[in-house]
Deep mutational scan, measured.
Amino acid sequence: NQASVVANQLIPISTALTLVMMRSEVVTPVGIPAEDIPRLVSMTVNRAVPLGTTLMPDMVKGYA
């Protein structure tokens, strides 16, 4: 089972991601792979991401 990136807090729309905002967790459905966390830092989300939500590729500008 692959770990995915999960929001560690509410991430408001257009917020630049930082390490403290994300954690890795094995979830269903599978989202962005946890090993991509370093790549996600400073990318922005294009929607509000509630606490505990799995980050999907279409939620992060420039990721997909």
Results as ranks from 00 to 15, higher is better:
1 N>I: 14
1 N>F: 10
1 N>D: 12
2 Q>Y: 15
2 Q>C: 06
2 Q>W: 11
2 Q>T: 15
2 Q>D: 13
3 A>I: 06
3 A>H: 11
3 A>R: 12
3 A>F: 09
4 S>T: 04
4 S>R: 01
4 S>K: 01
4 S>Q: 00
5 V>E: 01
5 V>Q: 01
5 V>N: 01
5 V>I: 10
5 V>Y: 03
6 V>F: 01
6 V>L: 07
6 V>W: 02
6 V>M: 04
6 V>T: 06
6 V>A: 02
6 V>G: 00
7 A>C: 04
8 N>C: 06
8 N>P: 02
8 N>I: 05
8 N>E: 07
9 Q>S: 08
9 Q>G: 04
9 Q>W: 08
10 L>Q: 14
10 L>G: 11
11 I>H: 01
12 P>L: 08
12 P>V: 04
12 P>A: 10
12 P>T: 08
12 P>N: 07
12 P>Q: 09
13 I>W: 09
13 I>C: 06
14 S>T: 11
14 S>I: 04
14 S>C: 07
15 T>I: 08
15 T>A: 15
15 T>N: 04
15 T>M: 08
15 T>H: 07
15 T>F: 05
16 A>S: 11
16 A>D: 06
16 A>M: 11
16 A>T: 12
17 L>W: 03
17 L>P: 00
17 L>K: 00
18 T>G: 04
18 T>Q: 11
18 T>P: 00
19 L>H: 10
20 V>D: 15
20 V>N: 12
20 V>C: 05
20 V>I: 15
21 M>D: 04
21 M>P: 01
21 M>N: 11
21 M>A: 05
21 M>W: 03
22 M>N: 01
22 M>T: 00
22 M>P: 00
23 R>T: 09
23 R>C: 05
23 R>V: 06
24 S>F: 06
24 S>C: 06
24 S>M: 12
25 E>K: 14
25 E>G: 11
25 E>S: 10
26 V>W: 08
27 V>A: 06
27 V>S: 05
27 V>M: 05
27 V>F: 03
28 T>C: 08
28 T>Y: 13
29 P>F: 04
29 P>Y: 04
29 P>C: 04
29 P>Q: 05
29 P>R: 05
29 P>M: 04
30 V>S: 14
30 V>E: 15
30 V>I: 12
30 V>Y: 13
31 G>I: 01
32 I>R: 01
32 I>H: 02
32 I>C: 04
32 I>N: 01
32 I>D: 00
33 P>G: 05
33 P>S: 08
33 P>I: 08
34 A>Q: 06
34 A>S: 11
34 A>F: 05
34 A>C: 07
34 A>T: 08
35 E>M: 15
35 E>G: 12
35 E>P: 07
35 E>C: 06
35 E>H: 13
35 E>S: 14
35 E>A: 13
36 D>N: 09
36 D>I: 07
37 I>W: 03
37 I>P: 00
38 P>D: 10
39 R>S: 12
39 R>Y: 11
39 R>D: 07
41 V>A: 04
41 V>L: 12
41 V>H: 02
41 V>E: 06
42 S>E: 08
42 S>N: 13
43 M>T: 04
43 M>F: 14
43 M>K: 12
44 T>N: 07
44 T>I: 13
45 V>I: 07
45 V>M: 07
45 V>N: 02
45 V>A: 05
46 N>I: 10
46 N>P: 02
47 R>L: 09
47 R>G: 05
48 A>E: 12
48 A>I: 12
48 A>W: 12
49 V>T: 04
49 V>R: 00
49 V>G: 02
49 V>I: 15
50 P>M: 07
50 P>R: 08
50 P>S: 10
50 P>H: 09
50 P>L: 09
50 P>Y: 07
51 L>E: 15
51 L>G: 14
51 L>A: 15
51 L>F: 13
52 G>C: 04
52 G>D: 09
52 G>A: 06
53 T>D: 09
54 T>L: 04
54 T>M: 04
55 L>V: 07
55 L>D: 01
55 L>G: 02
56 M>Q: 14
57 P>V: 06
57 P>K: 08
57 P>I: 06
57 P>M: 07
58 D>K: 07
58 D>I: 08
58 D>Q: 11
58 D>L: 07
59 M>G: 02
60 V>H: 03
60 V>K: 00
61 K>C: 07
62 G>V: 04
62 G>N: 11
62 G>E: 11
62 G>A: 08
62 G>R: 06
63 Y>H: 04
64 A>Y: 09
64 A>K: 05
64 A>V: 08
